[in-house]
Design a binder for these strands. Structure first.
Length: 599
DNA sequence: AGCAAAGTGG
């Protein structure tokens, strides 16, 4: 059939399709189809002109177009068409499999691969990316490993397209070590493989390794892509290294990545998590186009800096501009409310998220509501809320409540919740510590001993507190009372000096939460004195010019004694201190904290 | 045809 004849036939089927194309072959028209109807018209044309029997390349394009169509029934139509084809080849299988992995039906993709083997059709290199992607998103580690073995057998494991998906699969299934081994042994380490590996490191909280890979890329003169920037910025956010982050920002500008909305969103997130609210606002204001994610990132950033009211204002502004919020936006909103004690508003937003926006609440939204209720002391309500849920409450939900019980000193409910938690998982040191502190606060020393014994028996260890501070683009880490840092003697002396000065203005060490029963008051004071955040602040006072801001990142929540010390230091030494908790910020200035002592 | 943000608790 001549091209002009084909064009005539299509014209009789749908003028809309022809309008979209200057070309006349049905193959080139396919990507321009935007609706299921248009694709099916082309399919009808293909059947009419008897192409269905012989042209697998055209059929593959047809299936691809069907699977790309966002309307839900497309996978069904694609599979139906696939079933009608008599001579299936690997390309057809791959195309349908890709469709399933795109439409989040990983199990179908895996099944399809098995069917291909059963039909004695040899997979090619392109069969593996979608299969591995499916295994990754389904967390199907066994299948993933089998797929890897098959890829090795067939000689496709070091293929440039297969390698990144292999890395991704291992990382998503939780085996980052294996991912790294594959990456290291890869013969063809391209930019995309580096991106996968960097992302894998970030997702497994190994920011240092991610940044090292970025440097390796540069020394190998591989040109990063914007995806590289997303990974590297996320790594900076994890470490909380503001100056390194600023350097990356410059790099982003110089290399033309500033126009990617996602990169700007990652920059907002990075500045937010590195403690610079102003820089985050600067990036947000400088964006020409902002999507839901960009607004959400900015809302969350205000929230973690204790500016809940501003976060809510921004949400209103977002709605006025006609940007649709998603589940994450509401998470930010609920988070803002719970961390600013706005119970009624929070419950209001929780109600409208489904009724007005059709967003079904997930476990994380429930977590925020539990936090919202419990943090303000409505502990029983929070308990009832958890028990009334239609889904099985997770550990985190109980943990949220336990931590609030600790904050409000409610040992009775706290004990009930604690027992519930260790039934589910008795290996988490943090839970024991919260409950033990709660008991110590109520002078229930036998219980404190009991908990200690339980921890020893079960071999539970608590995560040591660690604070870090970036000075001259080097990150210094401090652990409580440790002598690992080269300057530790000097730092300890500095802490002693600080304490003397603070006592003059009325500081009294808050020893009631130190849960070593057999310590004297003085010994308790000493154990409190060398908490990691105090060491880091002392190091900051010693090694940064007077008047500059001290930025500290801590891996646990700040204790109340360190909180009051930081407030006093900000006043006595005339320094602003910005301290990052596990997931929020404390801005200390002239004796006050931005969290208004509510954290 | 591969990599791809934002997110409850501690």
């Amino acid at each position: 059939m001549s091209i002009s004849a084909a064009a005539t036939m299509i014209t009789t089927i749908s003028p809309a399709i022809v309008q979209k194309s200057q070309e006349s072959s049905p193959l080139s028209l396919l990507p321009k189809c935007s609706s299921l109807r248009e694709i099916q018209q082309l399919q009808a044309f293909a059947i009419k002109s008897r192409r269905l029997q012989w042209d697998n390349s055209f059929l593959s394009k047809l299936i691809d177009a069907l699977t790309l169509n966002p309307a839900p029934p497309s996978m069904y139509h694609a599979h139906k068409l696939f079933d009608q084809i008599s001579h299936r080849d690997a390309v057809l299988f791959n195309t349908l499999s890709r469709g399933y992995s795109r439409s989040h039906e990983p199990h179908q993709a895996i099944v399809l691969f098995c069917q291909m083997l059963e039909a004695s059709i040899a997979p090619d290199a392109y069969s593996f990316p979608s299969l591995l992607k499916a295994c990754a998103s389904a967390h199907a580690f066994c299948e993933g490993k089998q797929a890897h073995a098959a890829a090795i057998k067939l000689g496709f494991a070091s293929n440039a397209f297969v390698l990144p998906t292999l890395i991704n699969m291992y990382s998503q299934c939780g085996d980052v070590k294996a991912a790294r081994t594959i990456f290291d042994h890869g013969t063809d380490r391209c930019v995309i493989s580096y991106n996968s590996m960097i992302t894998a490191c970030v997702q497994s909280s190994r920011p240092g390794e991610a940044l090292a890979l970025f440097r390796e890329m540069q020394s190998r003169r591989l040109r990063p892509t914007y995806v590289t920037m997303l990974g590297v910025l996320a790594a900076c956010a994890l470490i909380g290294a503001l100056y390194l982050g600023k350097w990356i920002h410059e790099y982003v500008k110089k290399n033309g990545f500033s126009y990617y909305v996602k990169v700007n969103t990652a920059l907002i997130d990075m500045y937010g998590k590195c403690g610079s609210l102003e820089d985050a606002i600067g990036v947000f204001n400088g964006m020409e186009f902002r999507d839901t994610q960009a607004w959400s990132a900015m809302i969350v950033t205000y929230a973690i800096h204790g500016q809940g009211i501003v976060a809510l204002k921004l949400f209103d502004e977002m709605l006025q501009k006609g940007i649709r919020p998603d589940g994450i936006t509401f998470l930010g909103i609920l988070y803002s409310c719970s961390h600013s004690g706005m119970v009624e508003q929070g419950l209001g937003y929780f109600r409208i998220m489904y009724s007005d926006y059709g967003i079904p609440p997930g476990i994380k939204h429930y977590g925020c509501i539990v936090d919202l209720l419990a943090r303000t002391g409505k502990l029983e309500e929070a308990y009832d809320f958890i028990n009334g849920l239609s889904i099985e409450p997770t550990l985190i939900l109980w943990r949220t409540l336990l931590s609030a019980c600790g904050g409000h000193g409610n040992v009775d409910l706290g004990k009930k919740v604690f027992n519930r938690i260790i039934e589910l998982d008795d290996s988490h040191g943090g839970d024991y510590v919260i409950f033990s502190n709660m008991c110590a606060l109520n002078r229930m020393w036998e219980d404190v001993n009991e908990i200690r014994k339980l921890m020893d028996e079960r071999g539970v260890v608590k995560v040591p507190g660690c604070s870090s501070i970036e000075v001259d683009s080097k990150v210094h880490e401090f652990f409580a009372s440790d002598g690992k840092h080269p300057d530790s003697k000097k730092v300890h002396r500095m802490v002693d000096e600080i304490m003397e000065q603070l006592k003059v203005v009325g500081y009294i060490p808050d020893t009631c939460k130190v849960h070593h029963v057999d310590l004297t008051e003085e010994e308790k004071e000493v154990s409190l004195r060398y908490h990691s955040e105090k060491l880091a602040i002392a190091f900051g006072l010693l090694n940064t010019p007077p008047g500059t801001t001290i930025r500290v990142v801590k891996n646990l929540r700040i204790c109340s004694d360190c909180h009051s010390v930081a407030k006093l230091v900000s006043m006595v030494f005339g320094r602003q201190i910005i301290l990052r908790d596990l997931n929020r910020f404390h801005h200390f200035a002239v004796g006050q904290c931005s969290c208004a002592d509510y954290w």
